[in-house]
Nucleic acid binder design. Sequence first.
DNA 1: AAAATATAGTTGCAATTGCATATACAATCC
DNA 2: GGATTGTATATGCAATTGCAACTATATTTT
Lengths: 145, 145
Amino acid sequence: MSSILTKEATQAWIQLHRAHRLLLARVEETLKTNNLPPLVWYDVLFELSQVKEDGLRQYEIGEKILLYKHNLSRLLDRLEKKHFVKRYTSAEDARGNRIIITSAGIKLMNQIWPIYRDSIRENFAGKLSVNEFSELNKFLCSILE
Amino acid sequence: MSSILTKEATQAWIQLHRAHRLLLARVEETLKTNNLPPLVWYDVLFELSQVKEDGLRQYEIGEKILLYKHNLSRLLDRLEKKHFVKRYTSAEDARGNRIIITSAGIKLMNQIWPIYRDSIRENFAGKLSVNEFSELNKFLCSILE
DNA sequence: AAAATATAGTTGCAATTGCATATACAATCC
DNA sequence: GGATTGTATATGCAATTGCAACTATATTTT
């Protein structure tokens, strides 16, 4: 609760948010200029692509990508309207539905990834060594615990 | 341009964004339950409080907190309507204006900070040692270069 | 110095997000 | 097993954000 707030922690806090904002803005800009949808579409499609054919529940996607459930619900509306995902009801729990990615969704993912990847390369991957990224990742994981 | 995208860099990329989203969500939630405005209000007021009495230009604030100019313009509308900041025209450059923080703005900042600080303490400051935060900060600064 | 270009900020409108509440089903309690 | 509480998702509405175009002034070019 009342751990000390050092100068170092404060500085890291500020830089963390600056880094995120700047990097995200650059990726979004690149996607936009390539006529691709916002990054969060990719995030959802990616999570869906990682699982077997019976897909994911909305709340499972929400936990992975950290989005309010009502916003996810409407994001899925948009994705479904464009046929990138499909909702279907499963007997398992009739309150909700399961979401699966369609082949069009996979195709879109494959369109987005090379652009996204280049943006990560250009803005991020060259800035630190492998060991430094490994350290950075370790720190961030500790923070998320 | 085409630096290699290692597993380590990719992992760090993902964790960076997860960490940001989670931490920001927690801070915003805490602010809200304390009937305080969103964090970006604090960001603006803080930047204004760091400078002398003649304030900042909009584009200067924008550079610091990384916000589109049109969104900043309207954020300042809201802040000005509540008398937390004031716009005034300076002879220096008649295209724009300068923004200063009011005493009410300073008061609001001082209300937000203890809550914000507690949230940083609780969700962030205890997770790493001083040296680790220092390293983390160093890495993040390298990324921002 | 007039014309062309760039910069600072604003505004209308559409899309998205946040907030509160609603609906529908599940799980638990008595 | 009926009532209560909890969970999963959806929806109406207001606030915010993103996008494109616009106004006004500065700067640069010729």
